[in-house]
Design a protein around this nucleic acid. Structure first.
Lengths: 193, 193
DNA sequence: GATTTTGTTCATTATTTCTTGAACATTCTG
DNA sequence: CAGAATGTTCAAGAAATAATGAACAAAATC
């Protein structure tokens, strides 16, 4: 239910299998104690900010971390950059990035002649709001009519409670109308920021 | 992250320790296979509806069940009524009810000379929206200024990226302004439904 | 004041969700 | 085509969250 804020480390300390290797760069890059790219204070603070903000929407920390990193970094970053800087797994980074992309919270940056994909954060409130509403709110509203009908059909006519039940259905219908009014307003206002 | 809808039984089937007793009413009430109060089809449908709706807000199923039951029942119900009809534990019912009460989604009904507390569902959109915003949104917005300041303070002047970072802060400030504008609108519109 | 009724709290258990990492696919490069 | 680079998927484990039920108040009744 998310009532309290969980005190969890901001960026994982590299408690990995740091076996013997200290400089035996076996091909694909040094992954030792000192990160190749450290985060600056603004990035750290931004990541903390977004982890917190995303948690308010019950979204996983890794997504907040990724968005926070991109938000606070001027250059576009690749999947590997993200993994390296946040010290999260490939899987988390890939899935988190996919989620952010589908929402439109992250923009691919196409660099001619470069194979890797690079991303920057989308910061337009209109786009963020639109994406969030489209992916996470609309789906619930779309089967509203069907759900209302199911409710309606569950009423057994002629029972003493059926008049009460009909009034309840009226309430729910009103709630849907409200959503139909408020969402466009949100989008419109978001466009001004 | 809640991507798919989990197919879980609507109301727990009583797979309890239904030992030998069939009618040995040992003091505090019959708790056998046949519920004293069965749910009618409207109640079942309403509970399903609210479990789903509350899940959209990442709220636990038990809370959706409780609200759904109260919403679909004309008479006020006590904690024991809820436990009996939904077949949930005392703990869940008590805490769920507490949560709903603090939000204002449930109204106590005082009956003179009756010791138990009885509740009905609050269905006014204005009250529901106000309570939700107050309990779950405002707390996050209230420390907004402080969080913004932390971000601001994390900028190291004179670095090549500090101008970019300042522009980002401007964005975040805009988001807060947006929230300050939209929330009153939501409340105002909710009042009309 | 002992007992019953009513409700809360919280340690334990159950369930769900998130993260990891390795296997797999796919595309590029030589 | 072999090998490298890049990403995705998903089973297994770790972590977080929710539900249970028994112990514990608190208040009312006898």
């Amino acid at each position: 239910m998310e009532t309290t804020v969980k005190p969890k480390k901001l960026v994982r300390t590299s408690a990995r299998t740091t076996g013997g290797s200290l400089s035996s760069n076996g091909g694909n890059g040094t992954r030792d104690l000192v990160p190749r790219q450290a985060l600056d204070s603004f990035q750290l603070q931004a990541i903390s900010f977004f982890v917190h903000a995303f948690a308010a929407l019950s979204l996983p920390r890794s997504i907040g971390e990724i968005y926070g990193l991109l938000f606070s970094t001027e250059e576009a970053l690749s999947l590997d950059d993200i993994i390296e800087r946040l010290r999260i797994s490939k899987g988390s980074a890939s899935e988190g990035l996919r989620w952010l992309r589908s929402l439109g919270a992250v923009n691919p940056v196409y660099l001619p002649g470069v194979r890797k994909e690079y991303f920057t954060a989308e910061t337009s409130l209109r786009k963020l709001a639109t994406g969030y509403l489209r992916d996470r709110i609309n789906p619930h509203l779309e089967n509203g009519p069907e759900r209302l009908r199911l409710l309606q059909d569950s009423i057994v006519e002629g029972m003493p409670q059926s008049s009460f039940q009909k009034s309840r259905i009226g309430q729910v219908a009103g709630w849907y109308k409200f959503m139909g009014k408020i969402l466009p307003l949100v989008k419109a206002l978001a466009g001004k920021f």
